[in-house]
Simulated scan of single mutants.
Amino acid sequence: MTATLSSTKARDALRTSARFSAELLLIFAMLAVSLWLLGRMWSVVWPLVVGLLLTTLTWPLARFLRRHGWKPALAASAVTVLSLLVAGGVVALIAVPVASQSGELTDGVVDGIQKLRDWASGPPLNIGDDDITKAMDSAVARAQDGLGSMVTTVVTGVSTIVNGLVTAVLALFLMFFFLKDGPRFLPWLARQLPGRLATDIPTVAARGWATLGSFVRSQAAVGLLDAILIGLGLWVVGVPLVLPLAVLTFVSAFVPIIGALFAGFVAVLIALVFNGLTDALIVLAIIIVVQQLEGNVFQPMIQSRGLGLHAAVILLAVTLGGSLAGIVGSLLAVPIAALIAVVWNYLREQLSEPSPEPVAEG
């Protein structure tokens, strides 16, 4: 028996597909407009983001002081002053030496890539294809530009010192107000919203804050451990530029997966240029051991729960963030992806049908 195509079902399917496509295009248009507005307001959004990230790091101490009888304003002031003292110490002891050695670090990476290129062009590989040569030249240029951007981001936070100081001052003021008035924000927000939004948005905001705080604090702790262990290993081997390499390792920890690969690659290249192949292999072994300890020991101990993101999603998010906004985009890509996942999980919870009650057997 031959089945005939139902014109009614076909029209319904086409209408459904057209409606779905139109809705999807509308969502993409809204996202494009949102990104455009975000770019136009970046001078305000960037200090807000930095202030939120600083607040996630300092909130546990402020919460501890508040629970022990300190007034909110006094606790926020004490934590802000302490943060300024710590930041000043970091600038004096770490950032200034790193900035003074950044040119040497960049030159070492470029020389290391050139050595790899020369080795690949000789026996036994004998790679001399023009496309590979162009790719290596592109890698040299990108490594030089990317590493320079990383060092600039670490030292100044933005492209110029003036903007960096303005961003730092605004971020500190915002951090103070977040620490002082943060717990009152969600109740205030709930009173401003109508109907069900008064429940949904504060719930999503609370979950997003918990996720963001967990990510920033855990990555900072893991990055600090990585930087200390790898820095000690480089110092024992006798590799130069230990301090900037340790700082690079710490900052790269905030870009999961790709950051560790990038920092390890730079350390091996520096060892290859200044110490030779044997020490470069020793450094590679040290980095592999530390990364294994990080993945199997440090992160399970420090992170009480993961972000709930697959490794492929993290890779795609970091790649997209880097292509859209460079180093800053790479640093913010995973937290943004995690916040999107929080919103999606909440929507899925609200749209899911309740599980049917099991039928009792009589």
Score class of each variant (00 low, 15 high):
Ile336Asn: 15
Ile327Phe: 01
Leu14Pro: 03
Ala62Gln: 00
Ala311Val: 13
Leu37His: 01
Gln292Asn: 05
Ala99Met: 09
Arg217Asp: 04
Ala205Glu: 10
Ser17Pro: 00
Thr55Leu: 07
Ala246Leu: 10
Val255Met: 06
Phe185Leu: 05
Leu48Gln: 06
Leu277Asn: 14
Leu324Gln: 09
Trp119Leu: 11
Gly89Arg: 06
Val236Arg: 14
Thr58Tyr: 04
Leu232Lys: 11
Leu35Tyr: 13
Arg207Ala: 08
Gly264Met: 02
Ala139Cys: 03
Leu331Arg: 05
Ser83Gly: 10
Gln303Arg: 15
Ala260Gly: 13
Leu38Gln: 04
Pro183Gly: 08
Asn163Gly: 15
Ser330Asp: 07
Glu361Trp: 05
Ala317Phe: 00
Leu212Ser: 00
Arg217Ala: 06
Leu26His: 08
Leu197Gln: 12
Ser330His: 03
Val33Tyr: 05
Leu85Asp: 03
Phe64Asp: 09
Thr55Ser: 00
Ser17Cys: 02
Val158Tyr: 01
Ala333Trp: 02
Ala317Thr: 04
Gly321Lys: 07
Arg348Cys: 02
Ser252Leu: 05
Ser138Cys: 06
Val283Tyr: 12
Arg196Lys: 11
Asp145Ala: 14
Leu309Val: 00
Thr16Asn: 15
Gln192Lys: 12
Met136Gly: 01
Ile327Val: 13
Arg305Ala: 10
Ala312Met: 01
Trp344Gln: 10
Pro244Arg: 03
Leu197Tyr: 10
Pro356His: 01
Ser6Pro: 01
Thr152Glu: 04
Ile302Tyr: 08
Ser304Leu: 10
Leu316Gly: 11
Leu324Ser: 02
Leu293Ile: 01
Glu357Thr: 15
Val140His: 09
Pro194Ser: 14
Pro244Lys: 00
Ala120Pro: 03
Leu339Ser: 01
Ile201Leu: 13
Ser43Thr: 07
Phe176Arg: 00
Arg142Asn: 08
Leu38Asn: 01
Pro187Trp: 04
Leu170Asn: 05
Met175Ile: 02
Asp118Gln: 15
Gly238Gln: 10
Trp59Leu: 12
Val328Arg: 10
Ala135Cys: 06
Ile336Pro: 13
Leu339Lys: 12
Ile327Trp: 09
Ala73Ser: 13
Leu82Met: 13
Leu248Phe: 13
Glu294Val: 02
Lys9Asp: 13
Leu186Tyr: 07
Leu212Cys: 03
Gly51Tyr: 05
Leu309Phe: 08
Leu193His: 13
Gly362Arg: 06
Ala135Asn: 13
Leu105Met: 14
Leu170Pro: 09
Val242Gly: 12
